[in-house]
Nucleic acid binder design. Structure first.
Length: 503
RNA sequence: GGCCCGCUAGCUCAAUUUGGCAGAGCAGGGGACUCUUAAUCCCUUGGUUGCAGGUUCGAGUCCUGCGCGGGUCACCA
């Protein structure tokens, strides 16, 4: 255990002093009758009817204390807001009054009972008759002072060290109300997505996280092990193959919201585990999914933000459908002048990229080069919502080919604010084509592409029973949350982002 | 993985061109104060300057290595 700081030793001494008085500093129950917000509302309605202030018991964390001799003002905060407490020697007696002054620290949880009144400055306040410690805080939270000027809250200090905020998210949340708001928005966003899909006849399902074969995306997996079964298992990198098995099973609309795990680099937009929404719609194609996507995200924004417009990193973004649509070929040509259909071989395309000052990695296939053109030249410029359509077949092994161009598949990705937000396609339901794609992916894996899709015999078996034509969709919830909360880093929208162990 | 930046008291930050006693505000402790709200006023405690080496009479400061974080490039859906 780490050594205690001076402040912690002092608090521990106060704890012992409280116990010596026969008081339990961690009592099992509170007697709260009102949240702070409810208490203020109760006072206002009593006041409107000309009655005296009601008696309440409120509870919360001690936020500020102003001792003025024989009276003391303090604020406590609970999950709903704040309220001022007024401690008076005359009301409490010397012993209780001193108990508060001597034994309570900022950060402690306490409850206070008393009648509500307005101070001379008009603030609704509890005139404390009884109070009790609910939980002594032994470590000091960062102190945040604030002042209200013209209705705006100005904060004079804060808990702002990024690393410590992530490592001790509890302290971050406890001191920074705007951080709490980020995760409330995230929860509302997920609720809105569920509501949107539920209202359209989608069935929410749960599929395995521990999988004998991973798949559905291009990524390296985490590997784990079942001891009793002596079986290696993979943490899923997507839900796709299981959800499409359910279409074989005659569900027509399914979705899942849950965690994916990808064993890859960590960055401002990648966390090893992240939250994904995937849905699949039978008898729909990628055009239908595109329409549903723009409608869903606009709906979600209205529910969460109250508007289809938002500001992200200084950009005004309008989510109102219809969104811009352009093919991947057009997008890349517009952004860097390369028409990749004129460079049908890997070497030719690599040469064109070198002419732009790019040095493509020798292990990259033609499709990977196209993809890198997309992420390098196109993605950062797609600020307004944009669908990029029709991708080369060799980087999309689970999507259906375009009828008039077997080198491309019916796939789109949605971009907003310079980020890839979602990925969708007309799903491949031809078991023979699918088998060939898996075999090609196997060759790519053997050639060194560790993200190539593995063969999944059971999935092929499902498809052989007949899979209806369908459109599928996947979206990173974290990135959508970044967009909705104007955060530049995925770590700001994940409660406990992955960090290396502290030294 | 390469490069750049950061790491100083519980928190937020200082510490001079060119190495010269490690400081402030808040928090904490003691005191004054019966309507304060960044309360105010007086006094005051508190440091392995991320870690390990090196240079130097002397290192928070310069050098080397390492750790963690941030940024960026590469990689990566």
């Amino acid at each position: 255990m780490r050594p205690l700081s001076d402040l912690e030793r002092q608090r521990l001494a106060k704890l012992e002093r409280i116990r010596a008085q026969g008081i339990d500093p961690y009592p099992p129950r509170s007697h709260r009758t009102h949240t702070t917000t409810e208490a203020i509302a109760a006072f206002l309605s009593a006041e409107a009817e000309g009655q005296e202030g009601p008696e309440v018991t409120v509870a919360g964390r001690l936020r500020s204390v102003r001792v003025m001799g024989k009276i003391t003002f303090a604020h406590i905060e609970d999950g709903s807001g704040k309220i001022q407490l007024f401690f008076r020697l005359n009301d409490l007696g010397q012993e209780r009054y001193d108990h508060f002054k001597r034994d309570f620290d900022l950060g402690d949880f306490l409850e206070a009972q008393g009648r509500l009144f307005r101070t001379r400055t008009g603030e609704i306040t509890v005139q404390v008759q009884r109070f009790a410690m609910l939980a002594k805080a032994l470590s000091p939270l960062p102190v945040v002072k604030e002042q209200v000027v013209d209705g705006k809250v100005i904060r004079y200090s804060a808990f702002s060290d990024v690393e410590e905020r992530y490592r001790q998210r509890y302290a971050d949340l406890a001191t920074n109300p705007e951080v709490r708001e980020v995760f409330r928005k995230r929860a509302r966003l997920i609720a809105a997505l569920r509501q949107f899909l539920d209202e359209r006849g989608f069935l929410e399902v749960e599929t395995p996280i521990l999988q004998p074969v991973y798949g559905g995306a291009a990524a390296r997996p985490f590997i784990t092990h079942h001891n009793q079964l002596h079986q290696d298992l993979y943490l899923r990198i997507s839900f796709e193959l299981y959800l499409k098995r359910l279409l074989v099973g005659m569900y027509e609309r399914v979705y899942e919201i849950g965690r994916d795990f990808r064993n890859e680099g960590v960055s401002f937009k990648h966390n090893p585990e992240f939250t994904q929404l995937e849905f699949y719609v039978a008898y729909a194609d990628y055009n239908d999914v595109m329409a549903l996507t723009e409608e869903m995200i606009a709906y979600t924004a209205e529910q969460v933000l109250g508007s289809r417009r938002l500001t992200y990193q200084g950009h005004e973004i309008d989510l109102t459908p219809p969104w811009t649509r352009l093919t991947l070929r057009e997008a890349i040509y517009n952004a860097c002048g390369i028409d990749y259909t004129e460079h049908p071989t890997r070497d030719s395309l690599a040469e064109a990229m070198r002419a732009l000052g790019h040095e493509p990695s020798p292990s990259s296939s033609w499709g990977k080069l196209v993809d890198s053109l997309l992420s390098h030249y196109v993605e950062p410029s797609l600020i307004q919502p944009t669908f990029v359509l029709d991708y080369p077949v060799d980087i999309t092994p689970l999507a259906k080919r375009k009828p008039d161009d077997p080198t491309h598949v019916e796939r789109f990705e949605g971009f907003i604010g310079g980020m890839e937000i979602c990925n969708a396609f007309t799903e491949l339901n031809d078991p023979l084509d699918q088998e060939q794609r898996f075999i090609e992916q196997g060759r790519a894996y053997d050639a060194g592409d560790e993200e190539a899709h593995p063969m999944d015999e059971d999935y092929l078996q499902a498809m052989r029973y007949g899979m209806p034509p369908n459109g599928g969709f996947g979206m990173g919830i974290d990135r959508l949350t970044m967009l909705f909360t104007d955060k530049a880093s995925i770590r700001e929208v994940i409660l406990f982002p992955h960090l290396r162990p502290r030294t």
